[in-house]
Amino acid sequence: MAPLRNQRHELFANLIVQAPKSGMSNTGCYLACGYRAEGNAAEVAASRLLSSDKIRTRIAELTAPVVKKTRTTVDTLAAQLDEVFAGASGDKQWGAAGSAAALKARLLGFMREKIEIGGPGDFDDCKTPDELMRRLVDDLEDRQAVRAFCVEVVRLIDEDAAGAALDVSPAQEWPSMVERRHGFRE
């Protein structure tokens, strides 16, 4: 779609797209286009412009290249990490392969550094297991529910640890000291 015929509408759409960087409100964008209104009238008029199909289409059109560029960057990085993983696996460089896989998972949002239960920061003041237990009892209002929750957390921790455990059983039986001295096995 070409720029809007109404110059004020076009300027408004452009200012709305730039608003996150400039910190300008919708009302500020409306007034910067040369419209005259005061107080709530300016807010209502800005809201009415934002609900216009032509304005919304133009805003989507203006933001599309940024979204496409960002998506391409994530896709490109993911493809590059796939290549690193394949090359490292082929060379049996398991540490590098694991790092590439972990980095790709973090890039795609599968791994998070911190997971919160409740609102952000609700448990920041809990420094000991006792404080955490008291907070959970207060939030869940039922000690049995807290106990069931904790049992489930322990089960998930054990399950995760079991999945991360390394198999340390020997791949082959090693020769005894006598066999190594004589250079043969009986």
Rank of each mutant, 00 (worst) to 15 (best):
L11F: 00
F12Y: 08
N14G: 06
N14S: 02
V17L: 10
Q18G: 00
P20S: 09
S22N: 09
S25G: 10
N26Y: 13
Y30D: 04
A32R: 04
A37K: 04
A37M: 05
E38D: 09
N40F: 10
A42N: 05
E43P: 00
V44T: 13
A46Q: 01
A46S: 13
S47M: 01
R48E: 11
L49C: 06
L49S: 02
S52M: 12
R58T: 03
R58P: 03
L62M: 07
L62V: 03
L62P: 01
V67Y: 12
K68W: 10
K68E: 15
T70Y: 14
T70S: 14
T73A: 14
T73P: 00
V74A: 05
V74Y: 15
D75L: 10
T76H: 07
L77I: 05
Q80M: 14
A86T: 10
S89H: 06
G90H: 09
G95S: 09
G95F: 04
A101R: 04
K104T: 05
A105W: 03
L107D: 07
L107H: 04
K114E: 14
K114R: 04
I117R: 03
G121V: 06
D124E: 15
D124F: 08
D125M: 11
C126R: 06
L132G: 05
M133V: 14
R134V: 12
L136I: 08
V137E: 15
V137Q: 11
V137H: 10
E141H: 06
D142T: 06
R147Q: 14
A148P: 00
F149E: 02
E152P: 00
E152N: 07
E152Y: 01
V154Q: 07
R155D: 10
L156Q: 13
D158Q: 07
D160P: 00
A164G: 05
L166A: 08
V168D: 13
E173F: 13
W174C: 11
S176A: 13
V178R: 12
E179D: 11
R181V: 09
G183P: 07
F184R: 13
E186D: 15
E186Y: 03
